[in-house]
Design a protein around this nucleic acid. Structure first.
Lengths: 351, 351
DNA sequence: GCTGATGGCGAAAACGGTTTCGTAAATAAA
DNA sequence: TTTATTTACGAAACCGTTTTCGCCATCAGC
């Protein structure tokens, strides 16, 4: 059925446009009788308000922007689920914008958001992002921003993160306890908050256990899976080849496993692997993967909740809303000391 | 820097609002000199046009809606990548709406879209969707809809699908060739297009190879992973337990593998598994998973391209744009006849 | 019977752009 | 020189809502 606008609806009901609008918003100015009449006729004639007219007048779009590096990643897709659940509760829509890990893309997107296409932004920065002017400008233009996972420390706003440092420390410590003494760390960025904190946690653990950190064991991966595979393979070919790997992001899982297969290294006998990952399939990998599982859904939810608080109360101070939600180390086969019924190739060196 | 509107910009330049608007849209009515002046000042004063004002007047939102059951799924997240790439090329934004497989949610979302929040819709219906009035109403209100993957046959519009019937046939045939004679099919809906076509392909293969279809081997799974696990376990416990499984959606992978582990059934020795899936980790599962890999990215791109064609040409007939993009059967360990160095427990029955 | 509240509604101004139409000056054609 | 055309711009309508303000009627209080 053809859709009408408020003017036609007013005409049909022989009421003014303003009365219709008020009736549909349940205003106290309008009698119950009229409200019912309006609502019934609106439903009958298939009236759906034009959101742009409302947004223009009301200065709010009922959209929030979610700016993330990519969507084909368990962490981000679970976070989206969390965000969407809160958005829905608040009658909001979710605009997903992908930076594809490009700083330029991120700048372009945030610039556009200054036009008020969205009322607020949930942001997980690209791995190229090291400056934050574009974010501060958005905020200074009145669009609240809440970071989640990948933050810019110098921006004064709420940040929902997980305990990157501690969990990376735990992951590394776990590898050490399992007998690794040459542990590699796979990062994805020199500037990215999470990558650095995870690196620091790793280094702290090495230091604590008196293991000398080796520059050659710290690998900076790229955005390309194929290339990462080659880089990891090269890592495994070097003279002092590692017997443990901490992979700081999920997308490195497949290249790590494949590189090991190609190098005929058995996990966990020859090399043990732990990965920051939310892959549902971690438990059915060959071998099952020990992971640092991030609270992706909760992080999305918390970030969105905070954003909506800021949108509701004008004087809400986002600086005080930051939250750290702990990740969990889930120990599985890829770091076990010896696989049942299988020969042990690597000797535990510590413990 | 504080953001200004077109009126203030006009004031600053001592020009009229209409001249500014035209200059920024590179209208022939405006002199090159003025255009440059306007563009420079606009950039300097940080002018970002309000999209709602434009949308209201111009009757287009520069948004497309993507309505899908869920986002934490490789197929859909890859499809989103494809969609987003095309949207970006066209200067559009992507509004992601999740139905969570609920028909009611789907109806609510499409109803809202009648308000013109989006210029067009890419839709993959929920598994509960069996009627299509809500879709037809949206279309009859002038919002073009392109289906992808999960379609409603009776709706007259473009559909981008993959060869569900054929690939399911191939998957089943492959299992038969590998020696399975009791093959189970795991579906997710009685009404869903893909589920039914895949079921038919499966049945066709059984018939072709003179294998009697067994009602007890056709399982309707739910939306809950835990429950699916239990259902599959029950399937494997029955008297005439299957020695092959065709799982029609990706999310069934984990429960299938876990159910097999719990039943102490070895894949592929005791039971072979093929799954419709775009999981990147398929190749590193234990054992690696034979998949029907759908062209998710391409399907997203094609659907989006078609939608934009319809948005550009007013008389474009979407009925003629339908496309079937073939899936690929990628044979891996979960269906191999015998694993190297491992005893073969199940005997090939056919061939 | 007069004043002050109150309840129920309508007219009109916003919101910030785009687009149509008009017009003055400059240029070209006659 | 006169007329037609082109160039470059401005005024104002318009998109569909929301919201402010004003109005009239009714009613209570005195």
């Amino acid at each position: 059925m053809k859709n009408i606008n408020i003017k036609e609806l007013a005409c049909e009901l022989k009421l003014s446009v303003s009365t219709i609008s008020k009736a549909l918003h349940d205003s106290h100015e309008i009698s119950e009788h009229t409200k019912r009449r309006v609502q019934e006729t609106a439903a009958r004639l298939n009236y759906v308000p034009n959101p742009y007219a409302s947004s223009l007048r009301g200065r709010k779009s009922k959209n929030i922007g979610v700016v993330i590096p990519e969507v084909a990643d368990s962490f981000f897709s679970l976070a989206i689920n969390g965000i969407e659940s809160v958005a829905k509760e608040n009658g909001y829509h979710v605009l997903i914008c992908l930076t594809h890990e490009s700083f330029e893309n991120e700048k372009t997107i945030l610039k556009e958001f200054q036009g008020r296409r969205v009322d607020g932004v949930l942001l997980s920065v690209s791995r190229e992002t090291s400056k934050s002017d574009h974010i501060n400008e958005l905020i200074s233009n009145g669009v609240p921003v809440v970071f989640f996972d990948r933050v810019c420390d110098e921006v004064q706003t709420a940040k929902i993160t997980t305990d990157d440092f501690e969990s990376s420390y735990k992951a590394t410590e776990h590898l050490i306890h399992q007998g690794c003494d040459k542990i590699a760390f796979l990062g994805i960025s020199k500037t990215l908050s999470i990558s650095n904190k995870r690196l620091e946690g790793y280094l702290k653990a090495l230091k604590e256990y008196k293991i000398k950190a080796d520059r050659k064991h710290i690998l900076l991966c790229t955005d390309d899976t194929k290339q990462n595979y080659l880089l990891i393979k090269k890592l495994l070919q070097q003279v002092n080849s590692p017997n443990g790997i901490v992979a700081s992001v999920e997308k490195l899982t497949t290249p790590v496993y494949k590189a090991c297969v190609s190098m005929k290294l058995k996990i966990p006998e020859d090399i043990k692997v732990v990965c920051f990952s939310n892959l549902e399939t971690a438990s059915i990998l060959s071998p099952s993967l020990t992971t640092i599982t991030q609270p992706a859904f909760e992080m999305g939810r918390s970030a969105a909740k905070l954003l909506f608080k800021a949108l509701q109360k004008t004087n809400f101070n986002l600086n005080e809303g930051s939250l750290v939600i702990p990740s969990a180390l889930v120990v599985r086969g890829s770091t076990s000391k010896a696989k049942k019924g299988m020969p042990v190739f690597s000797k535990p060196v510590l413990q």
